[in-house]
């Protein structure tokens, strides 16, 4: 009896590992293609039939690409923006999610649906009027338009996500704390936030990813080259008449690395699991 269960488990694991291996291989392809393209010159890049591995490996692409523009400055700028945005979104989106899921107040539903509807607004409709507002306030060519939205809930996406997750946490926790006389603020910070680690990690990762690769917002607001971000630098490799594809790929490969690192680190919050299960058990 026990033997067959163990074998059953083994078989299941083998199947899983095989599937995972196939998936990993498939998912790795774009990244591999980017790195491989980064290490080739133009002639190799477009050879037909397709040349899969670079030969010779053009390592020089990487230093040339990174030196062709002041990447150190761009890197510093982008990190700054990312940190500011992640903190902003994590705090304000979860605050909003708490309000929409836990607290009773008049107009809550209407406000929530209105907020949700903002996701459906095509971006370029608000693009120019928003730019006008920031210009009038004198904040064009600064980082304020790039950071402040993150501190205003971080967008309907983050608020929606946070609310959904709040709703999976049973209310008994709140109510127990309320009986003990805790304030809303305390319930939010001390009791619920730690339980939200998975969704906070998700918000952090998405915000990181969104800010790191965001092209349109810095493009419109930033004029001073010293304020430029990495995404603008990458876009510069591409001209209206063809471009330096080898440098573009080399620089892109380097730019991707920090994000991979961050994801790798943050994902342990998923593994750690949610305290919730302990309570329910």
């Amino acid at each position: 009896m026990i033997m067959s269960r163990t074998i059953g488990r083994r078989v299941k694991l083998v199947i899983c590992y095989t599937l995972v291996a196939i998936l990993s291989f498939t998912f790795f392809i774009p990244f591999f293609w980017m790195v491989r393209s980064a290490l080739m010159d133009h002639a190799q890049l477009f050879r037909y039939p397709v040349q899969i591995f670079p030969n010779p490996i053009v390592w020089e692409n990487i230093p040339y690409a990174l030196r062709s523009q002041p990447f150190a400055i761009f890197f510093r700028n982008t990190i700054f923006l990312v940190v500011m945005n992640v903190i902003g979104v994590v705090i304000t989106a979860s605050m909003a999610g708490y309000s929409f899921s836990r607290l009773q107040w008049r107009g809550k539903k209407i406000v929530f649906y209105c907020l949700l509807s903002t996701m459906m607004i095509p971006g370029f409709i608000t693009l120019i009027p928003t730019f006008l507002i920031w210009s009038a306030l004198g904040f064009h060519n600064t980082y304020v338009p790039l950071i402040l939205p993150a501190w205003m809930g971080g967008g309907a996406f983050s608020i929606f996500l946070s609310r959904q997750f709040f709703m999976t946490i049973p209310k008994e926790l709140d109510e127990a704390a309320l009986i003990d006389g805790a304030s809303h603020w305390k319930i939010f910070w001390v009791i619920l936030m730690p339980l939200l680690k998975p969704v906070l990690a998700v918000l952090a990762i998405f915000t990181f990813m969104g800010t790191w690769n965001d092209l349109l917002t810095p493009l419109i607001y930033l004029r001073d080259r010293n304020l430029f971000t990495l995404s603008l630098a990458l876009a510069s490799f591409r001209g209206p008449f063809g471009g330096r594809w080898d440098f573009l790929m080399a620089a892109s490969a380097i730019v991707t690395l920090p994000m991979i690192l961050v994801f790798f680190i943050f994902q342990r919050y998923f593994i750690e699991g949610v305290t919730l299960t302990g309570i329910k058990g």
Partner: peptide
């Protein structure tokens, strides 16, 4: 600091 911006 960021709000100060820089004069191009």
């Amino acid at each position: 600091l960021a709000a100060c911006g820089r004069d191009p």
